[in-house]
Design a protein around this nucleic acid. Structure first.
Lengths: 229, 229
DNA sequence: CTTTTGTATTCTGTATGCAGCATTTTTTGT
DNA sequence: ACAAAAAATGCTGCATACAGAATACAAAAG
């Protein structure tokens, strides 16, 4: 087995040069976050510093720092004298998060209609068209990714940094849930229709309509995942 | 001036063993947060690990972990190879945060009217009465603290953990700003009047009214601090 | 006098070592 | 054989040590 862990190698594996271009801290945080989101580390799992560190090829010190960072993000929980465990979200937790997310996206939609430039709106439209293409070709994974990107992009249009921060945070906490919820074809179609409506409202800069669609979209999202909890 | 803060007993001290009941991590995080909020560490200041550690009587390792935690909270910024600096918020940043906070408190108010128990509402009323007493006696510091407590309490009534988390985070980021903004007597009176309205609406479980007052209250708060930026 | 370059110092980033607490296993008493 | 106590194991929490990067300083060249 290759002793140099994947963490310390460049992602694209291109030629020689500095092994590390991004700070190890960020890399570690991202990697751990992905492991949690993708279920490599299930909720309730203890984050074993020694073992995990060896597995990733780093010593305990930077690993602990990354864990503390994630704890502040709310993905893991720190238990005194006992380390960190992956946080477990109840159905109510998820519903609560979606309630907040809904309100925030409604706000973002309204702000976006007010302050976004035409060019930026065209950019979102482009993402949307890509997403539709993925829908038609049945590329679920890419669809899912673009879906998230679109929502983030709309939040970005609002040009409110705090709103962006919190949105990302909530999206991250929910990602693991959504990762599971694979809705059936008819629900999928409904979601796509909602997206069509969204982009139309945005292009028309119709604040109220956009907010309403965004809210409904998330409400339906809750409906789609509630069974799988 | 007491230079040695009692974060931890020094090993060379001959006194009885250091009594550590709360985890050092939490203590450090809270202490650093306070230092930032109260202006001991001004925006733009570099967090000097060696010096700061010696000052607080802890080694660099737990200090760094606390800093990473605060970085995730958004109070400090991590610059690769250069450590951490206290984050500086522009006037627009503050306005953006207040915009989000406003929306969240409106949501919290509506939810609170729906799900809060009568007993809990009585509890908020008690805080309110205390605060009024502080207003009449001119105790600004305690007034300020109770003010925050009331807002947090209303959010608490909504029984939405995610909402609570985010609210605390935004309040924390804004605390330092508010710490500066000392409004004059007439504005203070206006704020108190708004609080009276709030508690009335809450006791009547009047969702829309409570949301409206909370929103107006924060909008005015922005007016009160905008000059001092 | 200004600019540049080489050197020294300081600070961050990471690894390692040690002590204390938790938990589990073994031992002992009934 | 079973329960309780005691020892042993493993892990976390903190401190220290070391290496590399960045900055500050100084000397030399233009």
């Amino acid at each position: 087995m290759d002793e140099t862990s994947a963490l310390q190698r460049r992602p694209d594996g291109t030629g020689p040069g500095p092994i590390r271009r991004t700070a190890l801290h960020d890399t570690l945080v991202n990697h751990l976050r992905d492991m949690i989101i993708e279920g490599d580390l299930e909720p309730g799992t203890r984050l074993h510093e020694g073992q995990l560190g060896e597995q990733l090829g780093v010593s305990r010190t930077p690993l602990r720092e990354a864990i503390k960072y994630l704890a502040s993000e709310g993905l893991v929980e720190l238990v005194p004298s006992r380390g960190a465990v992956v946080k477990r979200f109840s159905a109510k937790d998820v519903k609560d998060m979606l309630t907040v997310l809904r309100t925030l996206e409604e706000l973002a939609g309204k702000l976006a209609c007010e302050v976004a430039s035409d060019k930026d709106i065209v950019g979102v439209r482009a993402l949307h068209d890509q997403m539709i293409a993925c829908y038609k070709s049945g590329d679920r994974l890419q669809y899912y990714k673009l879906n998230q990107d679109i929502h983030s992009a709309i939040v970005g249009l609002s040009q409110n940094a705090a709103l962006g921060d919190i949105h990302i945070m909530l999206q991250t906490r929910l990602k693991r849930i959504r990762f599971i919820g694979h809705e059936g074809p008819e629900k999928w179609a409904a979601a796509v229709a909602e997206h069509e409506e969204m982009i139309t409202a945005l292009e028309a800069r119709d604040k109220e309509r956009l907010a309403e669609v965004l809210g409904r979209h998330l409400f339906n999202a809750w409906d789609r995942v509630r069974d799988s909890l």
